[in-house]
Amino acid sequence: MKISKINVYQVDLPLKEGRYSWSNGNFVEVFDSTVVEIITDDGLIGVAECCPLGSAYLPSFALGVRAGLAELVPHLIGQDPLNIGHINRLMDAALRGHPYAKAPIDIACWDLLGKATGLPVFTLLGGAAQDDVVLYRAISQEAPERMAKKIELYAAQGYTKFQLKVGGDANEDIERIHATRSVLKPTDILVADANTGWTRHEAARVVGAIASLDVYVEQPCLTYEECVSIRRRTTLPFIMDEVIDTPNTLVRGIAEDAMDVINLKISKVGGLTKAKLMRDLCVQHGIPMTIEDTWGGDITTAAIAHLARSTPSEFTFSATDFNSYGTVDIAEGAPQRVNGRMTAADRPGLGVTPIYDALGAPVASYS
């Protein structure tokens, strides 16, 4: 089997709520997603999706995905997509860094491997470790009372884990955390996610002011070292996200007891191949994960579901159903939320079929 053609699509994903806001005044109203289609000489097609969270979140942006693909794809035509290790080595040799641009190629190759073998991707990633996975709901940054009302709304839809977007004014963030925790059941999970938005002194104030609450603190500051400083000042459970972006940073975090949980974003680390490596390291060292991505639609949600379903439940802190946030369907057969949970399909590959009317014509084709 050889790669004969790669098509690249661009699709806008508007939000049902109109806007998604997080730290430092950042927001997105319409997500710019890239869908990749790998076509082989024997007719099999693999698909994947990459959707950065704007351009001010991680060192990634929507146009960068497509620019990176333009650099990578000439090295991939004629290659065997089932030799995924070789594909990744080719990409790393052709383009230093930019893992998010490589991620959709890697994921589409896993989709092809599943279709070629007749197996779902979760089987290839280690086998089904759970029937379905628990989801979290991200609560966009707003006034404390509005965030509390949204938590009540989503709790009624079956969610039991909530990621509160803080990282703004420290005084208001303290109010946000208290207001939202007060409307939750004792068994519900609340994560105060600052998305790197606090300075060290602000983070120190916040963790002191919420010390009596049942709440997780996530990525309070910009750098790894600042976050570790805050971890040492609080007994609250601690989550690392943005700074755990490679297997090497994960190994450092484990060795230095820097966190209790990580957020494992598939495109941030370069695709399912490296995400599986990091997942397995976490399982070996007893570190639960939120398995997710930066953003996306139906195809991203499918990739998340397969990685999560192949992860033992005790190490799956939560996962994300990004396709429930948007107004546009881009694939049939994608996972759907049922009472706060979702599962990956038993069909070969990712188990999804692109809706080409939604994708439109390719913005680039390579052969």
Rank of each mutant, 00 (worst) to 15 (best):
N7R: 15
Q10S: 15
D12K: 14
P14E: 10
E17W: 07
G18F: 12
R19V: 14
V30M: 08
F31S: 12
D32G: 07
I38N: 08
T40L: 06
G46M: 02
A48E: 10
A48T: 08
L53N: 11
Y57F: 14
L58C: 08
S60G: 11
G68L: 04
H75C: 03
L76G: 08
L90S: 03
M91G: 08
M91N: 11
A94D: 07
R96D: 11
K102D: 01
A103F: 10
I105A: 07
I107N: 00
I107E: 00
W110F: 15
D111A: 08
P120N: 12
P120L: 06
T123E: 15
G126H: 10
Q130G: 01
V133R: 11
V134H: 03
Q141I: 09
E142I: 01
A148S: 11
I151F: 03
E152I: 12
Y154S: 03
G158Y: 08
E172G: 10
E172D: 13
I174D: 02
T180V: 11
V183E: 12
K185I: 00
P186A: 04
W198I: 04
R200M: 10
E202A: 10
R205K: 15
A209L: 05
S212M: 09
Y216D: 03
V217C: 07
E218W: 11
E226F: 01
R232E: 14
D241L: 02
T249H: 04
D257Y: 03
D260H: 10
N263F: 01
N263G: 10
L264I: 01
K265S: 01
K265N: 02
K265A: 00
K268F: 01
K268C: 05
V269P: 03
V269A: 04
V269G: 04
V269S: 02
A275S: 15
R279D: 10
L281E: 05
V283D: 00
H285S: 10
I287R: 12
T290F: 05
E292G: 14
D293W: 06
T301K: 13
A303H: 09
R309V: 13
S310M: 13
F315R: 06
F317Y: 13
S318I: 09
F322M: 08
S324F: 01
G333I: 01
R341I: 01
T343V: 01
R347T: 13
G349L: 06
G351T: 02
D357W: 02
A361M: 13
A361I: 00
